[in-house]
Write a protein that binds this DNA or RNA. Structure first.
Lengths: 145, 145
DNA sequence: AATGAAATTAAGTAGCT
DNA sequence: AGCTACTTAATTTCATT
C-alpha cells in the first residue's frame, strides 16, 4: 500500500461520509482539479485503501427493527469447534457484526431481527449448542452513534 | 415510506453490497431496464430508504489498527447526565458505534484506536468521569464478520 | 510522477409512448 | 415500464511542471 498524502486523506474523509460526492464537489473541497481527484480515488480503490462502497439502508425496511448485542462465552473444552462456529455465525443472516474478543466473554455479536420471536428463533437455531456455554443478550434500546 | 416491491428489495440487497453498481449492471440482475432501475434507486434515496452511501476505508489507513468493545455501566443516580454523555460519545472520533442497551450494562461502544496508548488516552478523556460507574474493555482479537 | 484543460466515453435523468 | 434524447459525470488524452 503506497504512501498517502494529505490530499488522499482528505478525500477518504469526505468519501467516508458521502461516497456519492462528484469529482467537482471533491475538487472544491480538496483544492485539486476534478480529474486529479477522481484519478486519486480510482487509485485508492484499486490499491484497496477504499475497500468498497455500500448503501446504508434504513433497517426498518427489511423489517429488522430490533438490534441485540450478544456476549457469547464458549466451552473452552472444545477448541476444535471454534472454526465451525465462526463459519456458522458468519453465515447467519441475522448476524451483522461478529468479533472475537478478550476477557470473560469470547465473542460479541450484533444481531438484527424483526422482533422477539425472530430473535428467539435465531437463538434456538444458532446459539443453543453444546459448544456455547453461556450467552448474554443486550437489547439495543437506541443507537447513539 | 411507500411500499416496496420485490424489485426494490432486490435493488437494495445489491446496493447494500456494492453501491457502485451501474444502472445496466442493476438491470441485468433485477430484470428491468437501466432507466427503470435508476428511477427506483432515485426514489429509494429521496424517500430515505437508502439513508446514504459511504466508502468503507481500510482501518489500517488511518492507523486505527485496534478495535475495542466497551461495556459501560452508568451511575443511576445521575440521570440528568445521560444526554450530555450521549453527546460526548457521539462526538468522540474513536467511537464508531454506540448503543444504549438493556441488561447489567447500559451502553456498548465500539472503539477504533491506533494502539493501547491511544486507547488509554481515550479512556482517560472520555470514560473516566463520575457518571460512569464501571466499564469493561473487550479487545477485538479478530473480526469474524 | 502528477497536474489541469480539453476531448471522449459512459452513466444518470427526463420526456414521451 | 420501456425507449430515446438530453444532461451530467467519469475517464482518458495530452501538454506542462
Amino acid at each position: 500500500m503506497a504512501e498517502l498524502d494529505k490530499f488522499d486523506h482528505r478525500l477518504l474523509e469526505l468519501l467516508q461520509e458521502n461516497a456519492r460526492l462528484t469529482g467537482s464537489a471533491l475538487a472544491q473541497q480538496v483544492g485539486l482539479s476534478s480529474a486529479a481527484c477522481l484519478r486519486r480515488v480510482q487509485r485508492l480503490r484499486e490499491s484497496g485503501v477504499i475497500e468498497r462502497d455500500i448503501a446504508v439502508i434504513n433497517p426498518r425496511v427489511f423489517g429488522k427493527r430490533m438490534t441485540v448485542v450478544v456476549l457469547v462465552t464458549l466451552n473452552n473444552d472444545r477448541p476444535d469447534r471454534y472454526n465451525l462456529l465462526r463459519a456458522e455465525l458468519a453465515k447467519a443472516p441475522e448476524v451483522v457484526q461478529c468479533d472475537h474478543v478478550t476477557g470473560a466473554h469470547d465473542i460479541v455479536l450484533r444481531v438484527k431481527v424483526a422482533d422477539m420471536e425472530d430473535y428467539s428463533a435465531f437463538v434456538d437455531r444458532v446459539l443453543v449448542q453444546p459448544y456455547i456455554k453461556r450467552y448474554e443478550s443486550l437489547a439495543v434500546l437506541g443507537v447513539i452513534k
